[in-house]
Design a protein around this nucleic acid. Structure first.
Lengths: 260, 260
DNA sequence: CCATCTTTGTGCACGCGTTCACAAAGACAT
DNA sequence: ATGTCTTTGTGAACGCGTGCACAAAGATGG
């Protein structure tokens, strides 16, 4: 999905496949939930179900990290939480800046999933002088004139772009020049960056269009097999054994959320 | 990416690969921009650059739709816009409901990229009685008690879930039971749905974690080749010929934006 | 009408990711 | 200590997606 998933062609980072890296956060979330329930160990089968993936895939994913399981028993939840967190680099603090404090930027600033994963919103930046000083999510918005200074003072290496599409590339260039090497882009634009800078994009419009494609296809099939109207077709069975249709991942991919 | 890319295993819908479908919206956006500038034709090379992909890949993608190009000339922009729009099902009206009108839900309601792509926000739904009647983006919020009626009255087949994680599965079940067959999920949870229902997920937290992984790797490499501190490492060269690092596709994978 | 030049459309090979299926490893009971 | 049972870790096969490289198609000029 998500997003966008910007695939990187052949960058097997230290032997860990990109597809596996994209699933590690999924496992981590499931493991954290188990940890909170004080579950000591979990089998690959159980954990796979909780994460919505195939158990064989999960075992292979973990095999890239090392042998952290015990045959006949399963995986130690706490230990695995630690190992995955470490592998993802979540044991350290990641200061993040959000540029573009509109509806979406404000929503991101209020997002509670940051702090719990080691991400800290170091600053909110907007080009509108009227926004300057106004607190959003308890953090005062700063003017984009100070972007470079903010990045450097806080040692920020991850930037989030939530500006309108027209401003995104310029903001991106400034972020990169100031030292940012990872960018999460919510603006519906293709960003051009130097080598060594990672970009992931999230584009809501794209996600909806992909859904529309499949929706259209479903409506078309149904039209010549079933006679009922489109809104009356409710499929309701087998909600138990069927694997969740989650994923989108690898590339994944990948949606945008900004005013066009 | 982005996430959210939920891959579907082997569902080559009418011969068009899933990876191609995920890129069609990208091409469409680039083509729309060209159309607004009244550019009559475009070569695969130019369009590929604008969309941030390989030209061979673009040509192969288009070949699945049919032969819409003219050798020696390129593609007719207007015609291609129409063909891709039709293929994605964007020539028809798609009523959409957004459930969960918090920060994110409001941001989505205000998102301008909906209407321009054939998506119409038919209703905003929230479980908080205090929200009922309050207009967001010019649309009055309705209480979730009326969810089923809203879905049916408006013939909605696409639902967007922007609720907290704890409420997502229950909302999903109700949407599906009421007739929704495509769901875009922003809650950080694995949704279980019956066969025939498509789910795509967008998870901001996951996207950031993937960035952190690569960021950590970059910092590690740099540490034993270059001696400078992490915040001082600015890569600044070759910003011209290098291909944009956009993608994440399929999968991409796929990020979430909700309070944990 | 012919030659040349541009650009598409695609056959082919390669590599990554997924899945199956099973041997190895350890827990547990007797 | 031995046997049985559970679950991991992985070798191997398969399929999808990507990119190369080129032949075919058409435009354009003489």
């Amino acid at each position: 999905m998500a997003t966008g998933r910007t695939h990187r062609p052949a960058t097997r980072s230290r032997g860990i496949p990109e597809a596996t890296v994209a699933r590690l956060p999924l496992y981590l979330r499931a493991l954290t939930a188990l940890s909170e329930r004080s579950v000591p160990t979990v089998s690959s089968e159980e954990l796979a179900a909780a994460a919505g993936v195939n158990s064989a895939k999960l075992r292979k994913d973990f095999s890239y990290l090392g042998s952290y399981g015990t045959r006949g028993v399963g995986y130690d939840v706490e230990y695995l939480v630690y190992q995955i967190s470490r592998e993802l680099g979540l044991t350290q603090d990641w200061p993040v800046v959000i540029v573009g404090i509109g509806n979406l930027g404000a929503a991101l600033a209020n997002y509670g999933g940051f702090a719990s994963r080691g991400f800290r919103v170091a600053a909110l930046i907007d080009a509108d002088p009227a926004m300057a000083g106004k607190p959003v999510a308890g953090i005062p918005v700063q003017h984009s004139d100070d972007l470079e200074k903010i990045i450097q003072d806080n040692g920020v290496s991850i930037g989030v772009i939530a500006t309108p599409a027209g401003a995104a590339q310029a903001v991106c260039d400034r972020l990169v020049a100031a030292g940012v090497t990872s960018i999460l882009n919510f603006a519906p634009t293709v960003l051009t960056v130097p080598d060594g800078v990672d970009v992931r994009k999230v584009d809501l419009s794209i996600e909806l269009q992909i859904l529309a494609f499949h929706e259209q296809r479903k409506a078309g099939e149904e039209a010549h097999t079933d006679g009922t109207g489109p809104a009356a077709a409710v499929t309701r069975e087998g909600a138990d054994d069927s694997a969740p249709s989650a994923d989108k991942g690898p590339d994944g991919d990948v949606p945008a959320v900004m005013p066009a």
